[in-house]
Write a protein that binds this DNA or RNA. Sequence first.
DNA 1: GTGGTCTAGACCACA
DNA 2: GTGGTCTAGACCACA
Lengths: 123, 123, 123, 123
Amino acid sequence: MLQIDKMSRQPIYEQIFEQIERQVLTGILKEGDRISSVRELSSELGINPNTIQKAYLELDRRGITFSSPGLGSFIAAGAVDRIKNMQKARLGELSELLSVLKTAGISKDEISSVVDSVFNKNS
Amino acid sequence: MLQIDKMSRQPIYEQIFEQIERQVLTGILKEGDRISSVRELSSELGINPNTIQKAYLELDRRGITFSSPGLGSFIAAGAVDRIKNMQKARLGELSELLSVLKTAGISKDEISSVVDSVFNKNS
Amino acid sequence: MLQIDKMSRQPIYEQIFEQIERQVLTGILKEGDRISSVRELSSELGINPNTIQKAYLELDRRGITFSSPGLGSFIAAGAVDRIKNMQKARLGELSELLSVLKTAGISKDEISSVVDSVFNKNS
Amino acid sequence: MLQIDKMSRQPIYEQIFEQIERQVLTGILKEGDRISSVRELSSELGINPNTIQKAYLELDRRGITFSSPGLGSFIAAGAVDRIKNMQKARLGELSELLSVLKTAGISKDEISSVVDSVFNKNS
DNA sequence: GTGGTCTAGACCACA
DNA sequence: GTGGTCTAGACCACA
């Protein structure tokens, strides 16, 4: 079940998109699994079907799901790897963010302690 | 002089806003300095004056500049500290980004090498 | 036995239809041969019987098969010629595709080498 | 001006999309040119703005155009090359089509005369 | 004015 | 039933 915040500045279709990606990544959804149909999710969440479809189209486009009219939408083979690869591309953001924090006067030690806390917790 | 990328997904007023902030932070603009008027910057950059105005209003709102009708806009006293404090608030983004990268299979060593490269370069 | 790709953008009924046509053309299916019943093929392929039915109706409509209620569906006399004639009609697609490739900067020599490779191989 | 066939089996947004691509390829639209706004084209063609936007989104996604809210949509730098490269990918279709025509009993000479007629005409 | 997002609801081909 | 396309029209941030 997805959590949608209609008041968020982040578009609803992006929220749906990201949460399904996260469920694939965490194993809640596995390759081959069928995800809710456009209509099902629409009535569950109280969101217009077009908005759901926009999220599903983006998932299809990225090769995370594939859709068969009449059958539904399914998690594609290799979806997990594809998501991970796209997320690795975010390594560039890290340098940029670190530069900002350095300029703001945050010490390397403070950064390191954040890195430690993220990489040493069990999850 | 500012560099505006009209093709960017980032709103133009945000680009203007951030670049002026950066110039304050790096000392190009000092407290008390006068910045270009809305009309000057508008014709220099070929950008709609309303867009410049929006960026300037946001700078005023955050206490980075103050405007005197008829005289222009000036960098406020304490602007540098105010900017640094707001940027420190971005420390929260770091944890979130690190979690994503960890999930994507990036090792703590890889992260550490990025941290080192940012904190050991002279700039 | 037919190979169905449920992920394909091509409708399943078209895949069934085309593969049976190909089997007629290559002699795997001969005039007078009985093809699997709708129910047999449906359970073999794990495909909705309505979808099989739609493919079979189209084969009947084009005079490639004929169906006798209670007996099954059979390859019609003259099926091979009928298929060949319909495929000749695709000669028009060739001009269109060649125009696109020409505009894309592909040389006549490159085209000719593809033509050679197709027409000189044994199959 | 675009020619839309509402009765066509090809989706309207694809017709719009392809015709704009063709205009870029033939030089009617040049890099940096502004194309009609969503609303303009919508009222010119009598097509719903959402349908126009879907075509424009696809153009953006392929890097053929870029859109700036408030300014409009423009032909991107390198658009022509990008279109040509995507069309070169259609070379694979050529082999497939030629195989079909060969099987249908069309001679290599007939194919060659079509190739000649396309590559020797001035356009 | 301009593109981006969203709702409400229709119709279609396909399964 | 299911996804795909389309219409009609609203509201928003941005320029």
